[in-house]
Amino acid sequence: MRTDWIRHLNDSDGPFATVVLDATHDTADATEQYRLRWRDLRERLVDAGADERTLAVLDDAVTNAPAPDGTAGRVLVADPDSVLLDRHTEVPPERGTASWGPVPELLPVLAAVGEQVPTVVVAIDNTGGEIRAVDGTVETVDSGSSGPVHKANTAGPGEGGADARVEETWKRNAQAVAERVDKLVRAGNAELLVVAGEAPARARLRDELAPASAEIMAEVENTGGTSPSRLEDTVRAAADEVRERRRSEAVASYATASGRAEGLAVTGLSDVVAATRAQAVETLVIDPSSVPGTELLVGASPAAVAEKPEDLLDGGPVTSAPAVGVLVRAAAAADARVVLAAPGDDVTLVDGLGAVLRFPVGPAA
């Protein structure tokens, strides 16, 4: 999972309130239920020592935001001056969480939000296609041809030539859609292309797409001319497959690196902390079910992390915070990725932590 979208949190000195709550709005009393859920989480923040300024910032954000449609979650990170992160999620959390401290509690944030998969969606038929770009813009595209798009129902003299003209119109329409799709894939850095329509229309489009678009194409069977706006479940499922493939590949890469002698993988809290302090972490691997509940010392910069005071050499102010939040914050500052291990993964993580390194650290160096 990329961490660029949380990196800006390092620009604030904190302290931070981190909230993950159920924002579902699908019943008559949904607004009242939302208010009650927030009140419970707010009380947890008060008990943890959150100041009135931060609570007021969150009160305003929670009460004034438009309600989502249907099931949803919401993630908020705030400091005493403003809301620094505000995301709605497609899936509400199993239970809400709220924390207060010198570092945002980013593990539940990552688990709730998930990795974004920029997606282009196309509904294709014989007349052209309706395309939704990564930014949500929808447009209808065809070749502008006035040629026929329907074949004759019965064969007769000269029908073969007429059918050929129809097929040529279909081809030109597919070419026009493919040209526009290729541009939108490039412009939006799309990582997924979902195509709906009857099988022959999808096949024509696939044949006309550039290789870069064809490689990320996922097809939806037997949908006719279904509009992109009605494909949300399919798009979500396809994006989940992309996320899971990436996650599995990243965990497998860690496992492979762990089995080699180059020193490009470490596990355990102490070794991961040392690699973080050296800014050597390329991918931080976390098993949420077994991470330590210990705290780490934190210096002036995100990479200034340590278990012992003597390991912090920057001379700045020192505080302490939960280990996982500290390590995720440092990973984001160093442009490292974060991967959450799952129960079925064939990987060993001491203290629930591991890292793939950019270069060896410690004795292996």
Rank of each mutant, 00 (worst) to 15 (best):
residue 239 A to K: 03
residue 303 A to Q: 14
residue 106 L to S: 06
residue 246 R to G: 08
residue 25 H to C: 12
residue 49 G to S: 10
residue 170 W to F: 06
residue 340 L to F: 00
residue 157 P to N: 13
residue 283 T to G: 08
residue 45 L to K: 02
residue 189 N to A: 12
residue 292 P to V: 11
residue 233 D to W: 05
residue 317 P to K: 15
residue 308 K to I: 11
residue 88 H to G: 07
residue 303 A to V: 06
residue 284 L to I: 04
residue 258 S to N: 00
residue 172 R to G: 02
residue 114 G to A: 10
residue 15 P to Y: 06
residue 194 V to I: 02
residue 111 A to S: 13
residue 271 D to T: 05
residue 100 W to M: 03
residue 333 A to D: 11
residue 94 E to D: 14
residue 323 A to Q: 00
residue 211 P to H: 08
residue 29 D to Y: 14
residue 341 A to G: 04
residue 62 V to L: 12
residue 354 G to L: 06
residue 62 V to R: 01
residue 7 R to C: 07
residue 226 T to I: 15
residue 130 E to L: 14
residue 216 I to V: 15
residue 88 H to I: 05
residue 332 A to H: 01
residue 216 I to C: 11
residue 85 L to T: 08
residue 363 P to M: 02
residue 351 D to H: 15
residue 201 A to N: 11
residue 239 A to L: 04
residue 300 A to R: 13
residue 186 R to W: 14
residue 229 S to H: 06
residue 117 V to T: 09
residue 214 A to G: 11
residue 16 F to N: 04
residue 35 R to I: 05
residue 179 E to C: 02
residue 263 G to R: 01
residue 250 A to K: 04
residue 97 T to I: 01
residue 138 V to A: 04
residue 180 R to L: 13
residue 118 P to E: 09
residue 271 D to H: 09
residue 40 D to G: 08
residue 235 V to K: 02
residue 277 R to H: 09
residue 91 V to Q: 12
residue 224 G to Q: 09
residue 203 A to G: 08
residue 79 D to N: 07
residue 86 D to V: 07
residue 96 G to V: 01
residue 132 R to V: 13
residue 304 A to M: 07
residue 224 G to V: 06
residue 129 G to I: 02
residue 179 E to W: 09
residue 48 A to S: 09
residue 6 I to D: 07
residue 165 R to V: 11
